[in-house]
């Protein structure tokens, strides 16, 4: 029971974090969005067998973590939540792709390399997305999406889904609390009650969603989610984006770890 209430509080931690005022938070939301999008595109564009070339891309999340003064633990936890899916997708590779691959002295199956590559890529992309939310906030992010001329129906869908998740969670918490108080000696919910509990949950969530929607309409909501005025894009915002974009491009074209390696070995020779 306590877990559910905890996760309810934690769920909005990304929004809490987004309210800080660091260098990164103060950047224009559109530029952060563009930076993230280019990061995702470049990371995903790497081939299946590439791991070394991906390593320089660790710099971006590390920099953002540091500059935005974000706590690592809650965000890492959220990455772990999706990790079963990633592992589920990647784990079959070592079995299907048995071809040998020479790594130093040892031969390992190429499947393990692709598995590692998938793991790394997913880790990086999920982290980048979470960092974007934690430094920008869902509302401003939606504003940025609108600036990019994404149709408002999609943006609204995204925002309301995000909002209603908490509505759903709150109802879950209430129902479970009521249940556990009257079934004190029980661990979890007995399966005879699952059906009616789930039914209740759906009905109640519908009801609440309906009332919230009504409350929104009463305050003049007409399909456009207004999140306040927009700041001008300053030269600094623009250079943040361009700087990262250049770095991503260079890191994509040249295998930086290899270059450094050969540079060092060259110097030694």
């Amino acid at each position: 029971m306590a877990n559910i209430m905890n996760s309810l509080y934690n769920m909005r931690i990304l929004d809490d974090l987004a309210r800080q005022e660091t260098v990164i938070h103060k950047l224009h939301s559109l530029m952060k969005l563009l930076t993230t999008v280019s990061y995702l595109t470049v990371v995903v564009s790497f081939g299946r067998y590439e791991i070394g070339g991906l390593l320089p891309f660790l710099i971006y999340p590390v920099m953002v973590f540091t500059l935005a003064e974000l706590p690592v633990k809650p965000i890492l936890l959220r990455i772990l939540i999706v990790s079963p899916f990633i592992i589920g997708i990647g784990i079959l590779n070592p079995f299907f792709d048995q071809q040998g691959y020479l790594l130093g002295e040892r031969v390992i199956s190429r499947g393990w390399i692709t598995f590692g590559s998938i793991l790394l890529k997913s880790g990086l992309t999920v982290t980048a997305a979470l960092l974007l939310i934690a430094t920008t906030g869902m509302d401003r992010l939606a504003g940025a999406l609108r600036m990019m001329k994404i149709p408002r129906i999609f943006v609204l869908q995204l925002l309301l889904t995000y909002r209603y998740i908490s509505v759903l969670m709150e109802e879950v918490a209430r129902i479970l609390r009521a249940y556990s108080l009257r079934a004190p000696n029980q661990k979890g919910v007995h399966r005879s009650a699952w059906g009616s509990l789930a039914g209740q949950l759906i009905l109640r969530t519908f009801d609440r969603a309906q009332r919230i929607y009504e409350a929104m309409c009463l305050r003049g909501f007409a399909g456009e989610y207004n999140t306040g005025g927009f700041k001008e894009i300053r030269a600094w915002d623009l250079s943040y984006f361009i700087g990262w974009a250049l770095f991503f491009a260079v890191a994509r074209m040249y295998n930086i770890p290899m270059l450094i390696g050969s540079l060092i070995t060259g110097v030694i020779k």
């Binding site: 409350a215 305050r219 003049g220 999140t227």
Partner: peptide, 27 residues
């Protein structure tokens, strides 16, 4: 202007400020 019976139905933004600003911004 209507104040709902259950304030939880009425407040749905991330901060009190944004919630109070929701109406005026819609206009």
């Amino acid at each position: 202007g209507m104040v709902f019976q259950d304030p939880d139905d009425q407040l749905f933004m991330n901060t009190v400020y944004d919630d109070v600003a929701f109406g005026p911004r819609n206009y």
